[in-house]
Design a binder for these strands. Structure first.
Length: 492
RNA sequence: GGCCCCUUGGUCAAGUGGUUAAGACACCGGCCUUUCACGCCGGUAACAGGGGUUCGAAUCCCCUAGGGGUCACCA
């Protein structure tokens, strides 16, 4: 045994990996990597009703997608396994039996109704609803009798009253709790399954976890867990409770605030490094003013001391900005490859892409990528590159083409396009030059009519690049169609 | 309701007794550009309130208010 730091991420596989869990995992991972410690992933699946293997898979995939790896745990193994709580049942058994023998725990036969009644009356008195220990002093005979009646007992921890439990939290400092406010809590359910508070202690202690870094919602559970550590004579771990992530209405982030699952961001085409960078900045701040960091750089910068105590609102706009930054820095090839599935889904490109189209797409993406916030947006931006007709003539565009000269420019531009021998930037430039000279137009007056004729709007990607990538045929067809529709409309 | 945590601009946040109270997103303005976007430059905007302590408080203490979490045979 060494003084090596060991931290863990212990999700319960009852759904996808959420923003909050992802950030907890990230902070644990960063802490481990920074301090050359071990990062362990354990599955907390004692909730038989809700746990499922699919969720487990999804969570693990999302962690990997974020770039997090683990030294020990599920899938990779290790000496302190197994790493799925359902496979550790015998281990828990030995510990709760020991507590029972030492008189530190006891069987409780109370029914759900009895408990609810007790809670309700305490609530009415303005006290903390909790179990007051009714079954603490049951005799063996009484227990046998209740068992014969068919009651299935739970095992409760016997809380010592009149005690102050102090959590030395690495982020929050000292936090005191009175044991009188904590009722005898359940260690083992009537079906023999350990509860979270019990299993988590056994696992953290046996896996020699040195630092428990988790969400603030666990802070009030900590005194219970500390009591178990003590009762069993385990070495206490350090605790660090990170603040919650809130939605825009300042309540705990949930589905109604928008996308909360990591997989949703992945599906929308967010880059993992952007999401990770953004998450790192929620509740933690680096030393300088820089805020773009790779995972590797985050490891260098990270420290628990700079984790903030207050809750943070998840700001989608900033995430989008940051993701856009990462998209702009990415190679067109990468963004293209990410974009293809969305384009296929829209039917814009074939399932099987020719190498020519593949190349073409790269150039199109290179033009588009600066305005993307996330990759799936590509399907709307890329529409201008498809079809022989413009999607829709905008009012501003229509107004522009009311001008006689503008229409002439479009007409002439089309004619030149058809006649010209080659199809490259120089050629297109030459056409514009010629027409400009011929009709005495330049700048906006020269370029915008063509843009409108080609796209229907006043804005879009660089015009010359657009023309090249559209190809001669589409350019000619679109301009003709636009002109045709225009005259048709004016005649009516 | 009891217990616990939190409180710097709309949002993320720096700040740890003396600062013109950083920076980023968003917003507004300007520049660049054939347009949009990108980029660049600039601007609006904050210490929840009240008491102390101190020569001096965003920073330390107390109270109030507000927000959040938690009180399960869920984690």
């Amino acid at each position: 045994m060494s003084d090596k730091i060991r931290v863990r991420f212990a999700p319960s596989p009852t759904g996808p990996l959420h923003i909050g869990g992802a950030r907890s995992a990230l902070f644990n991972w960063l802490f481990a990597r920074k301090r050359q410690g071990d990062f362990i992933v354990r599955i907390e699946d004692t909730d038989v009703e809700r746990s499922n293997l699919v969720s487990e898979e999804v969570i693990l995939e999302d962690l990997k997608w974020m770039g997090l790896d683990w030294d020990e745990g599920i899938q990779v193994g290790g000496e302190k396994g197994p790493y799925r709580q359902r496979e550790r049942l015998e281990i828990y058994d030995s510990y709760w039996k020991r507590l029972l023998e030492e008189g530190k725990a006891y069987y409780c036969f109370c029914t759900e109704e009895e408990l609810e009644e007790e809670r309700e009356s305490l609530r009415k008195k303005g006290e903390m609803p909790r179990y007051l220990g009714k079954c603490r002093d049951l005799t063996q005979a009484e227990r046998d009798k209740l068992r014969e009646e068919g009651r299935k007992p739970v095992v409760r921890f016997k809380v010592t009253w009149g005690e102050t439990i102090t959590v030395e939290d690495l982020i929050r400092g000292r936090v005191n709790f009175e044991s009188d406010g904590i009722g005898d809590f359940i260690l083992v359910r009537s079906d023999g399954m350990p509860t979270y508070n019990f299993a988590v202690v056994i696992d953290d202690a046996l896996m020699e976890i040195t630092h428990v870094i988790r969400g603030e919602e666990h802070l009030s559970n900590t005194p219970r867990q500390m009591m178990i550590y003590r009762a069993l004579g385990f070495k206490m771990t350090s605790f660090a409770h990170i603040s919650l992530i809130l939605g825009e209405d300042r309540t705990k982030m949930s589905k109604r605030h928008g996308a909360t699952a990591i997989s949703q961001y992945r599906k929308m085409g967010y880059l993992p490094e952007a999401l990770v960078n953004f998450l790192a900045l929620l509740g933690w701040a680096p030393e300088g003013e820089r805020e773009m960091f790779t995972l590797h750089e985050l490891v260098e910068e990270f420290s628990l001391e700079r984790v903030s105590r207050s809750a943070a609102v998840f700001n989608f706009r900033k995430l989008n900005w940051m993701n856009g930054e990462y998209i702009r820095e990415s190679s067109p090839e990468r963004i293209r490859d990410m974009a293809i599935p969305y384009l296929q889904e829209e039917g814009l490109v074939d399932e099987k892409i020719s190498s020519q189209d593949y190349q073409w797409l790269k150039e199109v993406i290179a033009l588009l990528q600066e305005q993307l916030e996330y990759v799936s947006q590509v399907v709307t931006h890329i529409k201008v590159f498809f079809g022989d007709e413009i999607e829709e003539l905008s009012p501003e565009g229509a107004e522009m083409l009311e001008d006689e000269q503008a229409r002439q420019i479009v007409q002439r531009f089309r004619e030149e396009c058809i006649q010209v021998e080659s199809w490259d930037k120089e050629t297109i430039k030459g056409i514009f030059k010629r027409i400009g000279k011929e009709l005495g137009a330049g700048g906006k007056k020269l370029f915008q009519p063509v843009r409108v004729g080609l796209t229907g709007t006043l804005q879009g990607p660089d015009l010359q690049s657009l023309i090249i990538l559209l190809g001669r045929e589409k350019v000619a067809n679109r301009l003709q169609n636009t002109l045709h529709n225009l005259t048709k409309n004016t005649q009516c």
